[in-house]
Amino acid sequence: MELTALQHQLIEELRNGLPICSHPYRTLADSIGTSEADVMNALHQLMQDGLINRFGAILRHRALGYQANAMCVFDIPDQDVRDIGKRMAALSYVTLCYQRERVPGIWPFNLYCMIHGREKMIVRAQIRHMVAQLGLTDVPQKVLFSKRCFAQHAGKYSLSPTSSVIPAGEQHEPA
């Protein structure tokens, strides 16, 4: 997707987050050298084009006591996976839901979801509820609880040869 020069600048300026002050968009505009209205319009456009998935706080699950982190994987028949995926994502305790490619002979699973919880016992109960609710009892599946989370590297990569690095690492969650 072609980005305008202003959108590029905004993405660059926002790599460390929004200024936390009474008028953050004006502050952004001042540092780029444009107007507050232009900044707000460009952000609205980025939202509308789906280039911004979510606008707000990125939480540190572990710091908040969400130590139990389960990645649940299922082997769902291809013709059912979209429907099941949608219903899975709608469950209140599911924090992420992805369909991924299988690795034949090694990893048959094609639907992944994450459940973050304070206690393993509760997460296990939620998984049982999910399996019952979506009729997945007979589907091949696995639950992979996390044991350790390594100090996250910034996960930096360049957008294009001309733009500098944006930290995308923190913006992505596992699975």
Binding site: G17, L18, L43, L46, N53, R54, I58, R60
Partner: peptide, 9 residues
């Protein structure tokens, strides 16, 4: 508690 505040691209 919050690692970053702003748009998630």
């Amino acid at each position: 508690y919050v690692s970053r505040f702003g748009p998630l691209f």
